[in-house]
């Protein structure tokens, strides 16, 4: 009795409290990282207004200047303001990544649902093709494809899209197979739905969750790979401001003016981290066990 009065938590229901706290943290994290991601998106959308200088304006008399009050992140070898270039580069990096992830998620899902629903020979053929893609190291394959297509940001996106869809096809296929025999789809059939209606109205909303979570987690990875291709000269080409190509451009000056490499590197690091943490949080939030 005495002990209970000194520690009031002992009298509470021990199973209720931790759950409540956990849910709140997941929701708080979700709001926090969504806001950060939104900020990033808005920043890249209004990059022209935000950049203090013209990112392509050269000022050779002020080249390779260290960070100062006038140029917060210094200037590069042509005297262009690094902060402006990093802000301008966000548009190329972030929007091409989002487009890429949207395309591979959509294409992979379509292929996966088709395979899972129809089965038979088309399924076998498409899945063996996806096995081939999955068996190669992705970036090396993307380099080969981008090399064949020639440089440019468009071709880098196409190259990465070509090699990245199988992951989504696999998820969509396994989800479709798991749902295919369920009673609610049979009930929909009996309610007079055509196959197309069953797929769109019933199957698709029920398999969307895991695909969405994978896509969110993939944004960071794809941003890295896109920057990597640009770094290798297979993506965006100078003078276009893109984080990967900016780093590549400055790598010879690493010892004398490290800020030119450091600025776009930091930008990649921060945005990849924000999108990864957002993806992680969405996965936690979508997990029904954490939403009890």
């Amino acid at each position: 009795m005495n002990r209970m009065s000194t520690d009031p938590r002992k009298t509470d229901h021990p199973t209720v409290r931790p759950q409540k706290i956990r849910k709140n943290t997941v929701r708080t994290r979700l709001i926090f990282f969504s806001l950060l991601a939104l900020l990033l998106l808005l920043g890249s959308l209004f990059s022209e207004q935000l950049a203090p200088y013209d990112p392509y304006l050269q000022d050779l008399s002020n080249a390779k200047a260290a960070p100062s009050a006038a140029h917060l992140l210094g200037t590069d070898r042509y005297g262009r303001d690094m902060l402006s270039r990093v802000i301008a580069g966000s548009r190329a990096s972030i929007f091409s990544t989002l487009l890429l992830v949207a395309v591979i998620a959509a294409a992979g899902t379509l292929i996966g649902v088709f395979c899972g629903w129809n089965g038979k020979r088309a399924d076998t053929i498409l899945m063996r093709i996806s096995d081939i893609f999955l068996a190669f190291p992705g970036l090396v394959f993307a380099m080969a494809v981008a090399g064949v297509l020639g440089g440019g940001l468009h071709n880098a996106v196409i190259a990465l899209a070509l090699i990245s869809w199988p992951k989504y096809a696999r998820i969509a296929r396994s989800q479709t197979l798991a749902q295919k025999e369920s009673a609610y789809l049979k009930a929909a059939r009996l309610a007079g739905c055509s196959t197309w209606q069953i797929l769109c109205r019933h199957l698709f909303p029920n398999i969307l969750g895991p695909i969405l979570v994978t896509a969110m987690l993939d944004i960071g990875t794809m941003m890295m790979e896109l920057s990597a291709l640009s770094f290798l000269g297979l993506g965006a080409r100078p003078p276009i401001a893109e984080w990967g190509s900016m780093m590549s451009d400055a790598r010879g000056l690493m010892t004398t003016s490290p800020w030119i490499t450091f600025a776009p590197g930091l930008a990649i690091f921060l945005s990849v981290m924000i999108f990864n943490l957002l993806g992680d949080t969405i996965r936690d939030y979508a997990d029904p066990r954490s939403r009890q």
């Binding site: 369920s182 009673a183 609610y184 049979k186 009930a187 929909a188 009996l190 309610a191 007079g192 739905c193 019933h202 909303p205 029920n206």
Partner: peptide, 23 residues
């Protein structure tokens, strides 16, 4: 037809009314 397991015969993401009115 009426199915064996009632809960599984309705789309988990749709309301009962939606399922009843579908046909």
């Amino acid at each position: 037809m009426i199915f064996q397991s009632p809960a599984e015969s309705f789309d988990p993401r749709r309301t009962l009314g939606d399922g009843i009115g579908e046909s």
